[in-house]
Amino acid sequence: MASLDIVQAYYSSFNHKNWDGMLALVHPEVRHEPNQGEVRIGIEKFTEFLGQMDESYEETLTDMVFFTTTDDSRVAVEFTVRGIYKKGEEGFPEAYGQAYKLPAAAFLELKNEKICRVTTYYNLPHWIELVSNPKND
């Protein structure tokens, strides 16, 4: 299966809240490099992260544009995150169901038809502004 197909299936699973479907596409030693915070290595830590995200955020990714390398080892994707902030996290504003819309991007590396690295970028200060002043979204 081509890397693009795998990554598209990964994000389709995300949008359908199919965490098992996502996890089936990642390598057991997946390296998750978030926008901020510590790097997570391994499917167990990535699974914990997905659970925390599901508890605090209701997100759908739209406007997705995919880019692949000629050797089919990497895929980049640009998208819009449309979300609802359900539960506050330490160091972030209080959550009370604020809606937000935020541009973001991710870079994924694949080996043997499994995603072995996910690196995500977005503007955290902008997200904080959006959930602090929800009329701005």
Score class of each variant (00 low, 15 high):
Gln8Ala: 01
Tyr96Asn: 12
Lys114Ser: 06
Val75Ser: 13
Lys135Asn: 15
Pro93Arg: 02
Ala2Val: 02
Lys17Leu: 04
Asp5Asn: 02
Ala104Thr: 05
Val65Trp: 09
Phe66Tyr: 15
Leu130Ser: 11
Phe79Lys: 04
Thr62Arg: 08
Thr120Glu: 15
Lys114Glu: 09
Leu25Ala: 02
Gly83Lys: 00
Val77Asn: 03
Ser12Met: 06
Ile128Trp: 08
Pro28Cys: 00
Tyr85Glu: 01
Gly51Pro: 13
Asp63Trp: 14
Leu110Trp: 05
Lys86Thr: 07
Ile84Asn: 07
Ile84Gly: 01
His126Ala: 06
Tyr57Gly: 02
Val26Leu: 01
Ala105Met: 15
Gly51Asn: 14
Ser3Leu: 00
Arg31Pro: 06
Tyr96Asp: 04
Ala99Phe: 15
Thr119Met: 14
Glu58Lys: 11
Gly51Thr: 07
Lys101Ala: 08
Glu90Cys: 02
Ser3Met: 01
Gly97Glu: 08
Asn35Cys: 08
Phe67Glu: 13
Arg31Ala: 03
Met22Thr: 05
Thr70Phe: 15
Glu55Cys: 03
Ala2Leu: 03
Phe67Met: 08
Val131Ser: 08
Lys45Leu: 15
Asn18Thr: 04
Lys101Ile: 13
Thr119Ala: 15
Tyr10Met: 08
Leu25Cys: 10
Pro93Asp: 01
Glu29Asn: 04
Arg117Thr: 13
Gln36Gly: 02
Tyr96Arg: 11
Ile43Trp: 10
His27Cys: 12
Tyr11Glu: 12
Leu25Ile: 09
Gln52Met: 07
Arg82His: 13
Met53Ala: 12
Lys101Gly: 07
Val75Gly: 09
Met53Asp: 10
Val75Tyr: 07
Tyr121Lys: 02
Tyr100Met: 00
Ala24Asp: 11
Ser3Arg: 00
His16Asn: 14
Gly91Val: 05
Phe92Gln: 03
Asp54Trp: 05
Trp127Glu: 00
His126Gly: 07
Phe46Val: 00
Pro93Tyr: 07
Asn123Phe: 15
Glu48Lys: 11
Phe49Tyr: 08
Lys17Thr: 02
Phe14Trp: 12
Ala9Thr: 13
Ile84Trp: 03
Gly83Tyr: 04
Asp20Arg: 10
Trp127Met: 05
Glu90Gln: 13
Val65His: 08
Thr68Lys: 09
Asp20Tyr: 09
Phe66Val: 05
Asp72Ile: 14
Val131Ile: 15
Gln8Gly: 03
Gly51Met: 09
Pro28Arg: 04
Ala95Tyr: 13
Tyr57Val: 12
Glu48Pro: 12
Lys17Ala: 03
Ala24Pro: 12
Leu108Trp: 08
Glu89Ala: 04
Glu38Cys: 05
Ala99Met: 11
Glu38Val: 01
Arg117Trp: 10
Thr62Glu: 08
Ile41Ser: 02
Tyr85Cys: 04
Gly37Arg: 03
Gly37Thr: 08
Tyr11Val: 04
Phe66Trp: 07
Leu130Cys: 12
Asp5Val: 00
His27Val: 06
Met1Arg: 02
Ala105Tyr: 09
Asp5Lys: 10
Phe67Asp: 12
Val81Thr: 10
Leu130Lys: 11
Leu110Ala: 09
His126Ser: 09
Thr120Leu: 13
Tyr122Leu: 15
Asn18His: 05
Glu113Pro: 07
Gln52Phe: 09
Phe46Ser: 01
Met53Val: 05
Tyr96Glu: 07
Asp137Gln: 11
Phe14Arg: 05
Gly88Val: 02
Ile115Ala: 06
Val26Lys: 01
Met64His: 07
Glu59Tyr: 04
Leu124Pro: 14
Asp54Cys: 06
Met53Phe: 15
Asp54Thr: 11
